[in-house]
Design a protein around this nucleic acid. Structure first.
Lengths: 335, 335
DNA sequence: AAAATATGAACAAACGTTTGTTCATGAAAA
DNA sequence: TTTTCATGAACAAACGTTTGTTCATATTTT
């Protein structure tokens, strides 16, 4: 059972293909199609249950009405939330989103971008996963509108939207210091990612400002396992840190697991603060103080930036770092 | 700067378009293209940085190599996790996924499906959001391969993959009953969804089996807010329930919030069990016992079913309900 | 009455592939 | 030598749109 095409409607109405096309695309007035013809076309389209063939329109017009969203993984609630918001924003603008996950795997990222290019995406919002970026540069040179989100790549001078991770980490660390902590363990995530690097810098700077020489920064992944492992290791040492700064809530979950195994309590034995808020942090055995990123703002501005690029509008600004908000709970002990 | 097409390669190599196409699609042997020509085409393609135009291939061949995944929202970790796994499975099979979120909104679901149809998707994995299904029936009649996941629609006789929600709820409720609870509040989610209905039935059946007449089942949404509200209300009554069965972990989060506000402890004052596991449940002030759905199995089998339909392979079975697993923690008090 | 303009719609090319078919050429068989 | 066959590749149509242009007819203006 063949689908009805614009040609079928043309035949059924005794009008030409171009007329039908113009009516269906709302260009009837512009091309002076008579009211009667308009009505006839629309009715016939409905009667024959016409569905436009996107591939044909895309091929002819060169417009795919498709935007790609590339994130590390949906299993991280921070990215899932970003994806959800962007997905809906784009849909409301009439775009279809192709959502891809790199899994922090550079080769996969490259392969995905190759495929997306074949599909003539009109724009790309991405969280780059690696330090390598020649493949992204290639896209930029093809004048594909690209916005980086959360992570970005200084060398590429692409528009980006992220959190002021330096500030957030600095403030978080100061919070610990102001509560009297001097032996603080930082557990970081993906080393090559800019947010992680900024957090590391903020962490270090706050320590330095307080004249704390020993910078104890461990770990290499935004995973529960990494948090667990590094905490376990730290607890084996002679001088256990009095506070831990987990660079993500997933890492914090790992800390929690390790601390629980060793029957250490928060904040009694060890204080804890983490990046990225989550509803459940409120209800943990000790409610964890966190550095909350403004997820909605990041998502919204990313799409705004992208549409500016697509529309060739001048961007008010190419880059934005939102200030995070520290949500005080009860995981830091005054000592 | 125009993109290089197959035609450009044909010109550059002095071969015909069809020959180039066949080489690039790996049909060289089948059509007896000489080794030299093959090599020449491949090299020229690389040299000119050729990227296939998917829209053109799609239009001509009728194959979109695209599959749609339609879920309620990525903000629910259960769906996000399903989406992530399916997305990756499909990518490995060479398909591109269009991920859409209905937001539990029937009209949006319809609009999305209309759009997807325009894009000639080759298959659909969906979590239907409503009780209405004429639009889905239409797709089925068009012989679009469809698999339902988590939720399904009895009337449509579509293949589905889900959890045995009746069994899970029955066992969960029995667990409470066996611990001596008789005044149990069930807080349910979307009323029209089959999993919710099955959970409600399992809940009720277990109570009945224990000769508990009073079936206390409230709520109407898989949201934190719903859990919070219903718990608040319940706590206002004279006889506070001794146990709560939250039909999702998001609902449980709401219960937690309400209980905390009223300074009631788990399991001391109120026992709690919920559907859907999550890592953080382990680390709550009271680790919550949960009914874990086999997310990976559901995702994997859904794609298996879909590929069977696409390949017109006979399905071993059209329907599958996996048994959930109850993960015992420490949120139920023996009374 | 002729010229100019407005109105409504048709023509036809193009987008970049895929694919069924045909066509040379040279080698092997008769 | 003629016929058959294998090899390698070209031809050309088609997929369903969009879109720049042209064309008739009717109406208005001069």
């Amino acid at each position: 059972m063949k689908r009805t095409s614009i040609t079928d409607i043309a035949k059924a109405t005794n009008l030409s293909i171009s007329t039908v096309s113009r009516v269906i695309n709302g260009k009837a007035e512009e091309y002076r199609i008579g009211k009667k013809s308009q009505k006839l076309v629309l009715e016939t389209a409905k009667r024959l249950n016409y569905k436009p063939n996107h591939a044909a329109a895309h091929l002819r017009s060169g417009k795919s009405r498709t935007i790609a969203l590339l994130i590390p993984t949906l299993d991280n609630p921070f990215f899932a939330s970003l994806a959800s918001k962007i997905n809906n924003d784009l849909r409301e603008e009439g775009y279809t989103t192709i959502l891809s996950e790199s899994g922090e795997n550079l080769e996969r990222e490259k392969e995905i971008l190759r495929n997306l290019l074949s599909r003539n995406i009109e724009g790309l919002i991405m969280v780059p996963c690696g330090q390598e970026f020649s493949h992204i540069l290639e896209l930029k040179n093809k004048e594909l509108p690209i916005v980086c989100m959360d992570r970005y790549i200084d060398e590429l001078d692409l528009p980006y939207v992220s959190t002021d991770n330096y500030f957030g980490a600095f403030e978080a660390t100061k919070l610990l210091i102001n509560s009297g902590h001097r032996n603080i363990l930082g557990i970081q995530g993906e080393l090559q990612s800019i947010p992680n690097q900024q957090r590391a810098l903020g962490f270090t700077a706050a320590l330095k400002e307080a004249n704390i020489d020993q910078v104890n920064l461990k770990g290499d992944s935004f995973s529960v396992q990494n948090g667990y492992l590094e905490t376990k290791l730290a607890l084996q040492n002679a001088d256990i840190p009095t506070a831990i700064f987990a660079f993500s809530n997933t890492i914090a979950l790992g800390c929690l697991k390790a601390l629980k195994e060793d029957r250490l309590s928060i904040p009694g034995d060890v204080s804890l603060i983490c990046f990225d808020d989550h509803p459940f942090l409120e209800f943990l055995s000790a409610p964890i103080t966190s550095v909350a990123q403004p997820v909605s703002d990041i998502a919204r501005l990313s799409t705004r930036f992208l549409f500016s690029l697509i529309g060739k509008d001048p961007l008010e600004s190419q880059k934005m770092l939102f200030k995070p908000q520290i949500i005080i709970r009860n995981s830091i002990k005054k000592i």
